[in-house]
Design a protein around this nucleic acid. Structure first.
Length: 282
DNA sequence: GGTTCTCTGCCGC
DNA sequence: GCGGCAGAGAACC
């Protein structure tokens, strides 16, 4: 039987080829160069790329460079070496934008990567076991599961270079606050969050925090909200990558017809959380 | 301070 | 679906 290639797959292949091209290039390829490789005009390529990935080609290149920088800062012999290895062509230009890329000075980032301390505690709540972890910048993980041990193991996987510190008296009260969120979801989340992710993920997660308790939104609606109407699938991937359960309410994102799709910590918990939130509606 | 590149809204085919 | 222009803005020199 003859199986024709679906047009959308061909388009997706072109975009992922362009992404790979950006990743392997020393310096970011120009829009025109990327477009001609795809056989499209720069105008159209730009729009297709943004619809598929949620970010513009330039933003994608910048995000990739910043990711490379994070890796290099931890491994390279010096900060200067890391900067040049990551594709920045002058250290002056780099330092100008360093705060936006890292949220701190490069040296601070290096030190944190090596010996960051993360406090954590596990507790029991209506949804099962809950783990809350906090870095110096804020809450960096909230996860749910059936038993405590796998949650701790997963935390170490997420922050391999960090030192995990359990059973801290002061921190126990923070955990109580988070558990309180589950029982009274209408409460505002006021704890500082240490959110780590790509530029696109951050945009999605910010949008999620604007969905009020008791309400839901579809992936498509969230995509439209962040100005990338074609990126519903990318929104789904960003939701799935969220490691701050409840604080970033990815449980409030459902399919367009209102039915529940997947949930990192189990679909039953998603249903449970939503039911609790909707009961509290005035 | 000028130039080049990026990005978006709008329109035509 | 695709290409193009205009105009604003950012990046670069």
């Amino acid at each position: 039987m003859h199986v024709p290639t679906a047009p959308e797959d061909a388009a997706a292949d072109k975009i992922s080829a362009a992404c790979r091209q950006i990743e392997i290039s020393e310096t970011a390829p120009s829009l025109a160069a990327l477009a001609s490789r795809c056989g499209l005009s720069p105008y159209h390529f730009h729009r297709v790329f943004k619809a598929a990935t949620g970010v513009t080609p330039k933003a994608y290149a910048a995000a990739h460079r910043s990711k490379k920088l994070r890796e290099n800062l931890i491994q390279a012999a010096s900060v200067t070496a890391a900067i040049y290895d990551s594709g920045f062509n002058s250290s002056g230009r780099f330092y100008a934008g360093t705060d936006a890329a890292l949220g701190m000075t490069p040296t601070a980032f290096r030190n944190q990567g090596a010996g960051a301390k993360i406090y954590f505690a596990v507790g029991e709540c209506r949804l099962g076991a809950i783990l809350v972890a906090q870095s110096e910048r804020g809450i960096c993980a909230i996860s749910l599961g059936d038993a405590p041990e796998p949650l701790v193991e997963a935390l170490q996987d997420q922050f391999p270079a960090a030192t995990l510190l359990g059973a801290d008296k002061k921190f126990e009260s923070t955990v109580a606050l988070v558990i309180g969120l589950i029982e009274a979801p209408a409460q505002k989340m006021t704890l500082p969050l240490d959110i780590r992710g790509t530029a696109f993920q951050q945009r999605v997660w910010q949008a999620l925090q604007k969905i009020p308790p008791g309400q839901t939104a579809s992936y498509r609606e969230v995509a439209r909200l962040i100005g990338a109407p074609g990126a519903a699938r990318a929104v789904g991937a960003a939701c799935a990558a969220n490691i701050l359960a409840l604080a970033i309410p990815c449980h409030r994102v459902v399919r367009t017809d209102g039915s529940l799709s997947g949930y990192r910590w189990g679909i039953a918990r998603k249903r449970d959380i939503l039911r609790q939130e909707q009961n509290l509606d005035p």
